[in-house]
């Protein structure tokens, strides 16, 4: 489903990833760990093709980074959900509108938008707050709204770039439980995190990004 073959990436002439190969299969849950600036976000950008490798090839659901045309990228992104540490919600729209926006901008019919937005908001436990503005929500609720927006297109993979980075431990656990449930329903999850306690609490395959390489990793016990 997602494969990286001998991928190297330089950003501003600085090598970030060096000759890495990787495979993420359908429905898998994978953690990405490593120091800040190690290349976790770069790896995610390669997957939603916001960035292209200098060498090697990235395959995402039959789209290849070597051959994909610019106008095909939006169609790839409709199959890949992305959430960030800072939520990236639109502050001038309600939770419902934020979620619906992801369907509106791809030209979905109005009836479909309403049904799917309500369904996904129920799934993340935020239906009762659908008419609230993002700044009226707690951090955890904002991340739920961001997850709902990422899920509303029914992607095959959810990329979560440090989704609990701004949240307290209790809420972080709740968000991870939500990601687990999403994963159980068949959506693959690739999550970058520094929160090793969460990895131990919800163990899955873990990859370590270090010195431009990716190796099988393990959450160190020195940090929580």
């Amino acid at each position: 489903m997602i494969e990286l073959f001998n991928v190297s990436v330089k950003i501003d002439n600085r090598p970030v990833l060096n000759d890495i190969s990787l495979q993420i299969t359908k429905g898998e849950f994978v953690y990405l760990i490593g120091k800040t600036g190690a290349g976790k976000t770069t790896l995610m950008r390669l997957i939603y093709m916001d960035l292209f490798p200098g060498k090697g090839n990235v395959i995402v659901d039959r789209h290849s980074s070597s051959t994909i045309r610019r106008k095909e990228i939006p169609f790839l992104r409709r199959k890949v959900g992305v959430v960030f540490q800072d939520f990236k919600l639109l502050p001038d729209r309600t939770v419902f509108d934020n979620v619906a926006f992801a369907l509106q901008v791809i030209g979905s019919p109005k009836r479909t938008i309403r049904a799917r937005a309500l369904s996904v908001l129920t799934r993340v436990g935020l239906n009762h707050k659908r008419y609230q503005m993002p700044h009226h929500l707690s951090g955890g609720e904002q991340q739920r709204a961001a997850i709902a927006r990422a899920l509303v297109n029914e992607p095959f993979i959810l990329l979560a770039d440090e989704p609990t980075g701004n949240l307290d431990p209790q809420v972080s656990t709740e968000i991870l439980a939500l990601l687990e449930s999403i994963n159980r329903s068949g959506t693959a999850v690739l999550m970058a995190t520094h929160n090793y306690g969460l990895i131990r609490q919800f163990p899955h395959r873990t990859l370590l990004v270090e010195n431009g390489k990716i190796t099988a990793g393990e959450a160190p016990y020195s940090k929580t």
Binding site: P74, L76, R77, K88, F101, A102, V105, I106, G107, R149
Partner: peptide, 17 residues
């Protein structure tokens, strides 16, 4: 620009943006 960023992220085509 955040609106543009999110539109790109969720798969809006350039013309639609």
């Amino acid at each position: 620009q955040r609106v543009i960023e999110i539109m790109r992220l969720v798969g809006a085509t350039d013309a639609f943006i």
